[in-house]
Every structure is written in structure tokens, then in C-alpha cells.
């Protein structure tokens, strides 16, 4: 059965393997340059990352996110449905092999390959982006997102292995239920994308209760203002702890309640719009404005996941996805034994 599974799977496996080799080669060639640049002690290392390396950084990160989806759609969904569509399950089930062993071999080989592919890609990208991720954590996430932020978290470390396992078995399960390859591929993609968007905010942020800190609002820590169309400030954010994943960033008044809309006088605190810097010498006004924040008891409350929880969250989330995959696999076995004809 191993032979047959491999014989059916080898083209798909080779395609992904070839793509991985190409990506790995690109990263291997460009990686050392980054490492040298960062260890050279170039002070604002992040500002000296070239545009090409920036593209590689975001591109490779996107690739780690996309690979599990591709595995679910192109490996998982067709794994059983193709046999059902061609009727070949009726050929193979009438050899001297039980359906359970047939499915177990298929899931075993393709599933392990999926996890290996995703794990290797994540390893390569994690290594390549290491200098940038380290510097981004120290700098406070100005030019590059923090390692623990949703965009990067899912593309580093071990979680991609969990995602790949889950996407793969999700594709198989949907394929078994839908019995149509193309439909199964579309549904798999939609469901997996929904899970990927929902998990960071609905699950990951709650795995460990978020840390909270309340700070005074000052000129040095304000990060941004959001104004409405007439230039009236609505809300502001302050910088979180370095490398943290900021979940909420809200202004509270002296009673501790969140402020929905900033008072009108805070307009003075806002930096001048670009191009008008000279016409409004407002430095003293801004100072007074920030002082007024302190006088009236306004403070800023920030909830966040600190950077040092990265590996704990990675471990928990990977375990979670693997457990979910195991559940789906059980469903697949049950369905194959009892419902498939």
C-alpha cells in the first residue's frame, strides 16, 4: 500500500519539493548578507534593510502562510475524492487490504509529507528572518512587525507544522463528505482561510490572559492619532512594550472608563499635517495640550501579549491544531468504514 500511495502521490510531492528547493536556495544565498549586516553593529540595522530584502521578508512570510492552504487544497481534498470520482476505490478495496489500512497509509504518508514540507519551509524562513525579527522586537515594531504579532507569528517556529496537518486533514475530510474534488477544494480553502483569520483573535489572544499596563500620555510615547474628515481627533494610540502584540490601546478618563471620542482640545496635541509644519508653530500648544491630559487624569490603557510568550503560544497552538487534526482523522476513518461505498 505504501508503494501505491507513493506512486499516486509522487507528482504532487515532487512539485512541492521542487518549489521548496527553489525557495530554500534563494534564502540560503541572501540570508548570510542579512546576518552580516546585523552583526556589523550597524546602528539602525532595520533602516538599512534593502528593498529587495524587504520583499523577501514579506514574500517568504506570506509563503509560509500559504503553503498549508495549498497543501489542504491540492493534497488533502483530492486524496480520496479523486478515487471516488474515478471509481478506483472499488478496485483497491477489493485487493486484500482493509479500508482502514488503505486510509491509514494514505493519511500517514501524505500527512507526514505535509508536516515536513511546512516545517522545513518555516525553519528556513525563521532562520533567514532571524536578524530582522530580533531587531524588530527590540525596536518596538516601528519598521517591521513584532515576532508575536499575527502576521509573523503564524509564519515562524513550529505552528506551520500544525497548520499543515490541519489543512491537509481538513481537505481530506471535506473531500470525503463532498465526494467532489473541485467543490472540496473550494470549501477547504474557504474553511481554512476562515480558521486562519479567526484563530489569532478568537483563540490565540485568550490562551494566556493578556498583560495590561496603564501609562500616562506623553509626547514621547504617543504613536498615532486618528482624526475624522474635518481634522478632529477621535482616538490615539501609544507605543506598547517592545516586541509585544498589542491587543487593545484605549484612552481612559480619570474614572477609569474608556473614552469613546477624544475631547476637541486634543487637536492641539496632534502633529501638524505634512507640508504645513511651518505655518503652525504649535510646539508650546502641544506641550500644554499633553500637560492637560495629565491634569485631567487621562491615561492610556494597553493590553498585550508580551514578546517572551512567543514559544509558549507556539507550543499551545501547535498542540491545539494537531489535536484538531487527530479528531478529523478519526472522523475520516469512521466515515470510510461506515459511510463510504
Amino acid at each position: 500500500m505504501i508503494w501505491l500511495t507513493w506512486r499516486q502521490f509522487r507528482t504532487q510531492a515532487a512539485t512541492v519539493a521542487a518549489a521548496l528547493v527553489v525557495v530554500a536556495a534563494i534564502l540560503a544565498i541572501t540570508g548570510p548578507r542579512l546576518a552580516v549586516l546585523s552583526s556589523a553593529g550597524a546602528n539602525p540595522f532595520l533602516t538599512r534593510v534593502s528593498a529587495a530584502d524587504s520583499v523577501l521578508y514579506y514574500g517568504s512570510t506570506a509563503l509560509v502562510h500559504l503553503l498549508p492552504a495549498a497543501i489542504g487544497v491540492f493534497w488533502g481534498a483530492p486524496l480520496v475524492t479523486r478515487e471516488l470520482e474515478l471509481g478506483t476505490h472499488r478496485l483497491v478495496w477489493n485487493q486484500s487490504i482493509t479500508r482502514t489500512r488503505w486510509l491509514a497509509t494514505k493519511l500517514g504518508i501524505a500527512g507526514l509529507a505535509a508536516m515536513a514540507a511546512s516545517g522545513l519551509l518555516s525553519l528556513a524562513v525563521t532562520w533567514w528572518a532571524g536578524p530582522i525579527d530580533a531587531a524588530a522586537g527590540a525596536s518596538g515594531g516601528e519598521s517591521f512587525p513584532a515576532l508575536i504579532s499575527p502576521l509573523i507569528f503564524g509564519a515562524r517556529g513550529i505552528v506551520p507544522i500544525g497548520y499543515a496537518a490541519f489543512a491537509f486533514i481538513l481537505g481530506v475530510t471535506i473531500g470525503l463528505l463532498a465526494r467532489r474534488t473541485v467543490a472540496a477544494m473550494a470549501i477547504t480553502l474557504a474553511v481554512f482561510a476562515a480558521v486562519q483569520f479567526a484563530v489569532p483573535f478568537a483563540v490565540r489572544s485568550h490562551i494566556i490572559p493578556a498583560a495590561e499596563q496603564t501609562v500616562t500620555i506623553g509626547r514621547t510615547n504617543v504613536q498615532s492619532f486618528r482624526a475624522n474628515n474635518s481634522g478632529q481627533p477621535q482616538e490615539l494610540t501609544v507605543a506598547g512594550p517592545p516586541g509585544a502584540w498589542v491587543l487593545s490601546n484605549e484612552t481612559i478618563d480619570s474614572t477609569g472608563h474608556a473614552v469613546a471620542v477624544l475631547p476637541a482640545w486634543t487637536a492641539d496635541c496632534m502633529p501638524p499635517p505634512p507640508g504645513q509644519a511651518r505655518s503652525r508653530p504649535n510646539a508650546p500648544a502641544a506641550q500644554a495640550c499633553f500637560a492637560k491630559f495629565a491634569d485631567l487624569g487621562y491615561r492610556q490603557r494597553v493590553t498585550y501579549q508580551p514578546a517572551d510568550r512567543f514559544w509558549v503560544l507556539q507550543g499551545v497552538e501547535t498542540t491545539l491544531f494537531l489535536a484538531l487534526s487527530a479528531l478529523l482523522a478519526r472522523l475520516c476513518f469512521w466515515w470510510t468504514r461506515h459511510r463510504l461505498t
Binding site: M1, W3, L4, R7, Q8, L86, G87, T88, R90, L91, V92, N94, Q95, S96, I97
Partner: peptide, 27 residues
């Protein structure tokens, strides 16, 4: 028990030799 299902399904992508290999490995 041998069973040749209706429309005699075979793997279109596998060769005749592959099918014999399949039979040899699974029986």
C-alpha cells in the same frame, strides 16, 4: 473474494505494469 466492479475501474494514470505491481503488493 475477487470483485470486478461495474465499468471495470482502473487508475488512468498508472500503467499496465503498475497495476500488476499494485496487485502484487496488495495481495
Amino acid at each position: 473474494v475477487g470483485f470486478v466492479a461495474q465499468d471495470t475501474p482502473t487508475y488512468p494514470g498508472l500503467t499496465v505494469a503498475d497495476h500488476l505491481q499494485l496487485g502484487a503488493r496488495l495481495n
